[in-house]
Design a protein around this nucleic acid. Structure first.
Lengths: 228, 228
DNA sequence: CGGTTGTTTGAGGACGTTCAAGTACTGTGG
DNA sequence: CCACAGTACTTGAACGTCCTCAAACAACCG
């Protein structure tokens, strides 16, 4: 499904484009395409050369790593406002990971060459992208900390606390548990047991709705980082 | 130990600064400082607010995560030409990780405010930084793949292959094994056993000098990614 | 040369995976 | 609206990997 004009107007309010001069945005959108894709769609595969910058306008996508005989692992999920695989586009290198639609999503696809050109030509765009990359860099570092320092139930707790943006103790999982398990570097079985463990720490799960009754306790359980 | 002028001249040939107009470099170096620091020096701690961009002019530094009762983990090592913790500086957020000197190093410290100012003012600098961040982003993604998809000896193999820049099968470890173990998310004991396992795959270790007799075999052992 | 620190090896145990059932959802057609 | 199929999730038991603890050995440094 491919729309132009109509959808492109909506793309202009994306954090990535919002602050930019109209002239620049026009150049970026000149050859851009909007796609609305169902869950499960494979956007690109690792090893392919970077053809487009993908911007998530709505929905949820995941970056997926695979190795022979070792199955798949989710590197990270991205949502509304995130641009993904910018590094491959910037460096003009093949994708290190594959892209998968986790939940029906509306995506903006900007040709890689256009992105590279505008990054050079427009410093406001470069600045915005820089901040975006810096933010994502910290996401990955936080995840590495979790993997290297914490066990399964602690990683789950850390993830849930992270998702609780409003800090009201209510989290809605936007991915199926199999994928969440792959993101958290454990099997679905271990994820299930991790949830069981967290029940003793005030976490109740009803389907995809999670309630964190005692956020403070959870933080203590996983040694949560205040640092955003 | 703090030097100015003399050392600052040498800093101009750093990849980060080399391609930039002299006027910009002058601004960056105006309040910058060069420090030569011995192994073990703690550069900054996680949670502190970002005061300086650190550029490694020579030597080796590590980013270290710590959590109570869980010890320390090395997120990544950086060497000559790398700038570290740029994300914290760019976003003006506290460091997510601590900085440690792994091997005596010469560092360039640029005040965070100067960096942010120049990032806004000079698009060439922004572009350089963007590429640097993109490169580092891919380093972290590669590491996440290793952690999520591979076992101990495979992670070690992957690391050794990565260090073998000239692809001649000769690697010199630039960090003590305890730190390498922390970077690879395993104990020193497990690292030792991982080396033992790799002996059967043509890896001989004499102190810090490693010889990879059969690179092809090693790649197969760990499902090595060609993707740079 | 003795003390300190780093590395290896072994034994036992914890955590997480695998394999195998069983239970609960979800959506579809009758 | 219910029956049913297919999928997702949970639970249990056995296993394996990696960690912990402990000791021996090697390397380094004053």
């Amino acid at each position: 499904m491919t729309t132009r004009e109509g959808g492109l107007a909506a793309a202009r309010v994306t954090p990535l484009l919002a602050g930019l001069p109209a002239r620049v945005v026009d150049l970026l959108l000149a050859h851009a395409v909007i796609q609305v894709l169902p869950a499960g769609t494979r956007l690109f595969e690792q090893g392919e050369s970077a053809t487009h910058l993908h911007v998530v306008l709505a929905g949820r996508v995941g970056l997926v790593a695979e190795a022979e005989d070792r199955g798949e692992a989710v590197i990270e999920f991205f949502t509304t406002g995130d641009s993904i695989i910018a590094p491959a586009v910037i460096l003009d290198l093949p994708y290190l990971v594959g892209g998968r639609v986790v939940e029906e999503s509306r995506l903006l696809l900007v040709p890689a060459a256009d992105v590279r050109h505008l990054l050079d030509a427009d410093s406001a765009f470069a600045r915005t992208m820089l901040r975006e990359l810096a933010r994502h860099w910290r996401l990955l570092v936080r995840q590495l900390k979790d993997l290297k320092l914490r066990g399964t139930s602690e990683r789950l707790a850390s993830y849930l606390l992270m998702q609780d943006r409003q800090a009201d103790g209510r989290v809605r999982l936007r991915e199926e548990r199999k994928l969440l398990a792959q993101r958290l570097a454990m099997t679905p079985e271990s994820l299930s047991r991790a949830f069981a463990t967290l029940r003793d720490h005030g976490v109740t799960a009803t389907g995809r709705d999670i309630v964190l009754a005692d956020v403070e306790r959870l933080r203590r359980h996983c040694g949560f980082d205040e640092i955003r």
